[in-house]
Amino acid sequence: MSELEVRSTVTVEAAARPLPRVGTVLAGLFVVFLAVAVIWPGLIAPYGPDAIAPRDAFQPPSAAHWFGTDESGRDIYSRVIWGTATSLLIGVTATAIGLSLGLLLGAIGGLGGRALDFAVGRVNEVLFAFPGLLLALLVIVLYGPGPVTATIAVGLSTAPGYARIIQGELRGIRSSGFVEAARVLGHSPSRIIRRHILPNALAPIAVLATLGVGQAIVWASALSYLGLGAQPPAPEWGAMLSAGRTYITTAWWMTVFPGLMIVLTTIATTVLGRAITSRRGGVR
């Protein structure tokens, strides 16, 4: 093959590669913004989260206060930025709890025998009979409200969904051709799990974690809005929604902007998770 043909082939292959979609790029930029808000909130927040100014109470959005102020004159934009770390910590921790329990149950069912597979499947069906948020409320009723309890409750309520997906994924990998070939070659079950099954299951599990963070943030914010999670005046998005609902008709910005951050964060993490899924061909 001539040098010109080689260059033409490389050019065609480069042109055939899918360019990042605008939505994916915007989602990535927003996640970077969230990372800055977590690591260095003072860089982009002009005020402290608890800096009160009674004379500036209920100021609408303006050049001085981009998201307006609340009943104590605190800057809503600054509180949203400072609350990013708390809200994301709750979402990530709840996702880690749910994913860990789901991985445990899914591994028992997906890698065990038929009896364990059947038992885990029935347990998941029983847990799925309860809506996730209702299960979280049940946990809070038993152990009391608070951000820690809300985080654990959200994690427990998301575990059945993760378990079902992971169980099906491991079951599919276990019956694949390359695993059967490893068995024929005489590899031990532990080696097959360690060298073939687990590496192929890590990618979809990472995708699940990305998709689950947004859902966990929404559920935790819903619990805070109901007064069962973080409590005002904590700069947490759900707690800010709860504090602003009293003034929804006179100071709409107190609820709109924290709610907008929840929505945008959920959309951004979901878009990135789906982008990862599409690049690896989807979760089996």
Results as ranks from 00 to 15, higher is better:
residue 208 L to P: 05
residue 189 P to V: 01
residue 197 I to C: 12
residue 151 T to H: 01
residue 204 P to V: 01
residue 186 G to Q: 05
residue 164 R to T: 02
residue 171 R to L: 13
residue 142 L to Y: 06
residue 179 V to A: 13
residue 16 A to G: 15
residue 207 V to M: 09
residue 75 D to L: 05
residue 180 E to K: 10
residue 177 G to L: 13
residue 83 G to P: 07
residue 18 P to M: 10
residue 47 Y to T: 10
residue 284 R to T: 10
residue 204 P to A: 13
residue 206 A to N: 03
residue 93 T to C: 14
residue 157 S to P: 09
residue 264 L to P: 04
residue 42 G to T: 05
residue 131 P to K: 13
residue 11 T to P: 02
residue 70 D to C: 11
residue 201 A to G: 13
residue 241 L to W: 10
residue 47 Y to N: 15
residue 226 L to R: 09
residue 211 L to F: 08
residue 68 G to P: 03
residue 120 V to H: 10
residue 100 S to R: 09
residue 9 T to D: 12
residue 88 L to Q: 02
residue 169 E to W: 01
residue 246 T to C: 05
residue 95 T to K: 08
residue 266 T to V: 10
residue 265 T to V: 08
residue 274 R to Y: 09
residue 148 V to F: 03
residue 253 W to K: 01
residue 52 I to P: 03
residue 131 P to I: 02
residue 46 P to E: 12
residue 170 L to F: 02
residue 224 S to I: 04
residue 20 P to D: 09
residue 269 T to L: 15
residue 158 T to I: 13
residue 69 T to G: 02
residue 163 A to K: 09
residue 72 S to P: 02
residue 39 I to E: 01
residue 137 L to Y: 03
residue 237 W to Y: 11
residue 115 A to I: 14
residue 209 A to T: 07
residue 154 V to T: 04
residue 19 L to R: 14
residue 153 A to T: 02
residue 141 V to R: 15
